[in-house]
Simulated assay, not measured.
Amino acid sequence: MTPEIDLLVNPRSGRGRAAVTAVRLKERLREAGADVRVLAGRSAADSRRLARLSAADRPDALVAVGGDGLVHQAVQAVVGTGVPLGVVPAGTGNDIARAVGRPGRSARDTAAAILAGRRRSLDAVRVRLEDGAERHFLSVLACGFDARVNERVNGFRFSVGRAGYLLGLLAELRSFTPADFTVEVDGRRIEEPGMLVAVGNTNAYGGGMRVCPDAVPDDGLLDVVFLRAAPTARFIRLFPLVFTGGHTGLDLVVVERGRRVAIRTEAGAAYADGERIGRPPLVCDVVPEAVEMLELTS
């Protein structure tokens, strides 16, 4: 049978790099005998709609060509369906691709890996908001300082790539103050002022910041990192440790692990996979083996 492959593309991702990557990948897949559809969303909501239409058609694979935000939209469609999801990184951070294995350098190698169909079952995380709305994510949910930075960066008039996060961080430091948090992990409670809380299914966000360095996406558990309130000067000194994962040994940091995480705070909106989820209170539940991920590593 002819393999049916859907390419979900954000043409603007990576300053147009995703569109070029998708064209090359489409050509290599067709040369190999696959039937290929290219689905280009005009917005996040449109990408999510196209991904759901694709999943309903049960292709041999849905491949997201873009950044973490596009993968997030694809996850909403494929979770629990068994439709294999491939990730070809062409965005800014690409943390999900980094966690599941980057594909080979050439479009030909990537096409061959897609058609080989090797799979790995990954956990997803279901987020339930107070109004009953639900979303799923694959990487990290964050609330507090880092989510506020994300919100600020998303408000920039133009994209400046990974440097945008650092610009947003410096801007947010001028006004951010610790907030009260109540975080429950399988019933164990953290209740005190803090800078941020991160719930990790994978270990990194923000383009390689290893906020939950020991998180594994197929162990049925969530890693939770809570940063206690700290003076701004100390926070600035310690924050770079997040790029190596060295922050988890500090007395300011509480690390927990569990299957359900509930968060209450007035610290602002939560972000997951780099996308705005909504304001707490919210509950995160791990959903074991909910996504069939294509292994595209060469």
Rank of each mutant, 00 (worst) to 15 (best):
L141K: 10
N150I: 03
H136C: 09
A113W: 11
S121V: 12
D95Q: 06
A111W: 00
A56Y: 04
R30D: 05
N94R: 08
A113V: 10
Q73Y: 13
A112C: 14
R120E: 05
V127K: 00
G155F: 10
G132W: 11
A44F: 14
A99P: 10
R152P: 00
G80T: 04
R120V: 07
R52L: 12
P103W: 07
R58V: 02
P84F: 08
Q76G: 01
R120K: 13
A113I: 02
R49L: 11
A133S: 12
D46Y: 14
A61G: 05
G132R: 04
V36T: 05
R118W: 12
V87E: 04
S121Y: 13
V87H: 01
N154Y: 14
Q76C: 08
R148S: 13
D109C: 15
A34K: 09
D131G: 04
F145M: 07
A147H: 11
E31N: 12
R98W: 11
L122S: 03
A97E: 01
V65Q: 02
S106L: 13
S106E: 02
V125N: 06
R37Y: 10
V38L: 12
N154I: 10
A55N: 04
R157D: 15
A45P: 09
G93Y: 04
R162T: 09
N154W: 14
V88C: 09
V71G: 00
G101Y: 09
G66F: 09
R108N: 11
A74Q: 03
R120W: 05
L53D: 11
A142Q: 08
A56H: 05
G101F: 08
V75M: 11
V88M: 03
G66H: 03
A51E: 01
A124R: 07
E130G: 14
F137A: 02
G93Q: 10
H72Q: 02
V153R: 06
A163N: 15
D95T: 00
A64Y: 03
D123I: 03
R49V: 07
G41V: 06
L141P: 01
S121T: 14
G67M: 01
V79I: 04
R37L: 13
S54Y: 04
G161A: 04
A64Q: 03
Y165Q: 06
R120N: 06
A97F: 10
E134K: 08
D123F: 02
A116S: 14
Q76H: 07
I114T: 05
D57E: 14
L62N: 03
L39I: 12
A77I: 02
R30V: 13
G144N: 05
G101C: 06
T92E: 00
V160K: 04
A111D: 01
G104C: 10
D109P: 12
S121A: 13
A97H: 08
R49H: 07
V149I: 03
V36N: 02
V36Y: 02
G69H: 09
A55C: 08
A61C: 09
G69V: 05
V140C: 07
R42A: 15
L29I: 03
G132P: 00
G104W: 02
R48E: 03
L39E: 05
E134T: 01
T110C: 13
P59R: 14
Q73W: 14
L50T: 00
V63G: 00
E130S: 15
G144P: 07
